[in-house]
Design a protein around this nucleic acid. Structure first.
Length: 482
RNA sequence: CGGGAUGUAGCUCAGCCUGGUAGAGCACCGCGUUUGGGACGCGGGGGUCGUCGGUUCGAAUCCGGCCAUCCCGACCA
């Protein structure tokens, strides 16, 4: 019996999406705010999600030939300034160490906001011949960007990520690598996070600082806003020039490398929250759920001992087939409290085992989201059934999120419809590609170009805003973004 | 950096207007009763009231400075 307006519930999404998000992150015990502005403590439950995501990414990164390494947190300030666009883009958000060991440093050290520069410096030492290429490196690290407006997971001062940095003999190979990164993100977002994404190229105004081309995956959150969930960059030869990354080709000539980089961060967790969560709390895709199944034994005294033993038995059987299971043994809490608690934490499947269940030889199964209510499942069938239920739930979440995105994506050709479309989702439009027109649109509607979707249907015409000829030969996505 | 708000117990907040030396709910600890959708009783522990200064016999309360955090924008993964 839930008390209305009770302090247990989270603010409804429809009332205040931002409040819903902030409360959920804390209530589901994913993270806490750190004492310094913009810092985040990732709690065990949230970190477990990150570890699962990490494992999926790391496996794919290694499978495509990359090796893990680790580079320093501190970068000499002068490195950042070697690539003009790069320093211009990152200067405003750098944390700089000027004093250490009790005295002023000869040269200030920047806490890495990303590692192109220091890795570029090392690449120049490691690469001398075409035989050294391609060089494919990944690092798991923390980075610091002094953001003006932090939000847990979405934009914290310090965040965790992986960053792949590669050097290649020519543009074609570096571009191929850039696309490997993008494809990896599409795969992980879609098949692991159940987050449908649109992959495409960023417009010039939205490019990574120092990149020739930037590609992104964009997911739609349940408030209709876009989340850039991963980026992959073709960096051309600009970092190779800045850090002297050259190789001797087959004829002995000295040639600049073409480099690429791609990264995905703990922001993904924010994306998962906002893609699947509802007013009861978090909803986790099974592949990223620390606990895919939680079993709540019911009853008291001897009965509780019996149901607990049965729960442990079921748990052991499920673990044997690779299911992540947790048995809720807390004795001081009522069943109702536990149900709400696990729903807040987004556990996909809950099994209740009480006296009535055992008499009937079943467990009562409740999915985190279901129209069918609770189902009685014979104990003997659980081992066969649960993995299927989890797979179905994973697919259900992806299908549901995909349908949501499609319902909130509108091709529009006139300005009025555009303004309307970006208040609830994305607009697919023809655009002139001029940065000043992008700025104008942003000022009026807060919407920005998300990306130029790969594989978009060829289409010509005039810009939805200014009427000049469209620049991309196809429609591009505009939306409000995180 | 603009706009708004807030700092009092672990959390959410009341008390401040009208100065008299700190409260509630939840959480926590103990005991007992409970346990199929957010249990209850009794007892208990816990706060230099963000900070510095001023006014006053006396400041959580009045006045001023400072600091910090949160929310909305600009910047951004």
């Amino acid at each position: 019996m839930s008390k209305k307006g009770n302090e247990h519930a989270v603010t409804p999404q429809s009332e205040d999406f931002s409040a819903w998000y902030n409360e959920l992150v804390v209530r589901a015990e994913l993270a806490d705010r750190g004492p310094a502005k913009g810092t985040m403590v990732i709690r065990p439950y949230g970190y477990a999600i990150w570890e699962l995501l990490q494992k999926e990414l790391d496996t794919r990164i290694k499978a495509t030939g990359h090796q893990n390494a680790y580079f320093p947190l501190f970068i000499p300030e002068s490195y950042l300034t070697r690539e003009a666009d790069h320093v211009e883009g990152f200067a405003p958000e750098l944390a700089v160490v000027t004093h250490a060991g009790g005295k002023k440093l000869e040269e200030a050290l920047v806490v890495r906001p990303t590692s192109e520069t220091i890795i570029g410096e090392m690449f120049s030492k490691w690469i001398s011949s075409y035989r050294d290429l391609p060089l494919l490196i990944n690092q798991w690290a923390n980075v610091v960007r002094w953001e003006l407006r932090p939000r847990l997971f979405l934009r914290t001062t310090e965040f965790l990520w992986h960053e792949v940095h590669t050097a290649h003999a020519d543009e074609a190979d570096a571009m191929r690598e850039t696309m490997v990164g993008l494809a990896t993100y599409v795969d992980v977002a879609t098949n692991i996070a159940a987050m449908p994404v649109v992959s495409g190229e960023k417009t010039a105004g939205e490019r990574f600082a120092g990149a020739d081309k930037t590609f992104s995956i964009e997911g739609m959150m349940r408030d209709g806003r876009a989340l850039q969930a991963g980026t992959s960059h073709y960096l051309g030869t600009s970092f190779a020039k800045a850090f002297d990354i050259q190789y001797a080709d087959e004829t002995g000539g000295r040639t600049l490398c073409h480099t690429a980089s791609w990264g995905m961060s703990t922001r993904m967790i924010g994306g998962i929250i906002m893609t699947h969560g509802d007013d009861k709390g978090l909803v986790l895709p099974p592949r990223l759920a620390p606990y895919q199944v939680v079993i709540v034994p019911l009853g008291k005294a001897e009965l509780l001992e019996t149901t607990t033993a049965a729960a442990q038995q079921v748990a052991a059987e499920l673990r044997a087939v690779g299911v992540r299971v947790h048995v809720d043994l807390r004795v001081n809490l009522s069943p109702g409290f536990k149900y709400n608690d696990w729903e807040m934490k987004g556990v996909p499947v809950r099994l209740e085992i009480g006296g009535r269940d055992l008499e009937a030889g079943v467990a009562t199964m409740a999915l985190r989201i279901s129209e069918d209510g609770k189902l009685a499942v014979p104990l003997a069938e659980l081992v066969a059934k649960i993995p299927v239920v989890l797979e179905d739930f994973q697919e259900f979440l992806l299908a549901r999120a995909t349908a949501f995105r499609e319902e909130h994506t509108t091709p529009v050709d006139d300005w009025e419809a555009f303004v309307e479309a970006v208040t609830t989702g994305w607009a697919l439009v023809l655009h002139c590609g001029r940065p000043e027109c992008e700025d104008d649109i942003k000022e009026v509607t807060k919407a920005t170009p998300r990306n130029v979707p790969l594989g978009g249907k060829a289409e010509t015409g005039t810009c939805v805003r200014c009427g000049q000829p469209s620049a991309y030969g196809q429609r591009i996505i505009f939306g409000r973004a995180y």
